[in-house]
Amino acid sequence: ALPCVAAAGGRWMVGFRASRRALLPPLCRAFARPGCPLGPERGAERREAAASRVSGFCPPRKSCRDWIGPPDKHSNLRPIHFYIPESESPLEQKLRQLRQETQEWNQQFWANQNLTFRKEKEEFIHSRLKAKGLELRSGSGQKATLDAEEMADFYKEFLSKNFQKHMYYNRDWYKRNFAITFFMGKVALERVWNKLRPKHKKSST
């Protein structure tokens, strides 16, 4: 597939339920914590600070779900604002930080790749038009283009030149997703254990 992903605009929307169905294994969905009790004010402030680092948009204070935003203008990937519960365990924190770091890595890779793609595409078009004795824009100001057969030469060359880079990206992508899935399983088991383990009752005096 070409590195430029089709962009889709739109307003921010709550995407937690849809993203969990797509990303979390059934085990994690089965034992996800029910409900969403609101934490103290400090918890809301932590959520807003984390959200603002991504796009400047802050989910509502009372939100207790992950939020999925519109495509980033550079990477064309949809960023996620991760919900940080007040009672987040060390294992849950590790999972969230791993997902955040993976998202930043993925965003950076595709932002750079798309920038390179657009730059080299313009250079290719310019060189082909120059070889034909044509200008980038016609006398009416309309931008000159090449036909599909000529552009196919560029796509083939670009993909061939970036084959190794994409191969390393896919390798790291699978490694990161395996690690995330592994921690999801550990978090699910931790939640099951917390539900099943006997709770110590306070002895009456």
Rank of each mutant, 00 (worst) to 15 (best):
Q108I: 00
H74F: 12
N106I: 09
M151D: 00
K143N: 09
N106C: 06
F154S: 05
L38K: 06
G39T: 06
G56R: 05
N170E: 14
I68D: 10
F124Y: 12
E150I: 06
N76L: 05
G139F: 08
C36Y: 07
A50M: 05
A49R: 14
K73D: 13
R171W: 15
I125D: 00
Q100P: 00
L98N: 04
Y174K: 15
C64V: 06
L95W: 07
L136E: 05
P90N: 02
Y168M: 13
Y168V: 00
K161N: 12
G139M: 07
R137I: 15
K94R: 15
N76Q: 07
G141S: 05
C36K: 10
P85I: 07
I125F: 04
S140A: 14
G141F: 00
E149H: 10
N114R: 12
R53P: 01
L77W: 06
S52V: 13
R78P: 02
E48D: 09
W173K: 15
I125V: 15
E150P: 00
Q103C: 01
A111I: 02
E48G: 11
E123H: 08
R118Q: 13
S140Y: 05
E123K: 12
P59T: 10
F57D: 04
G43K: 08
F82I: 00
H126W: 02
G133R: 03
D72G: 04
A51F: 06
E41D: 09
Q142C: 04
R78T: 06
Q93A: 14
S160H: 15
P70K: 11
F57L: 11
S127L: 03
A51V: 03
G141M: 02
F154A: 03
R42H: 05
M167S: 14
N112R: 11
S138N: 14
K156H: 12
L136W: 01
A131L: 03
Q100T: 00
E86H: 08
V54L: 14
L136K: 02
K161V: 01
E41F: 06
W67F: 13
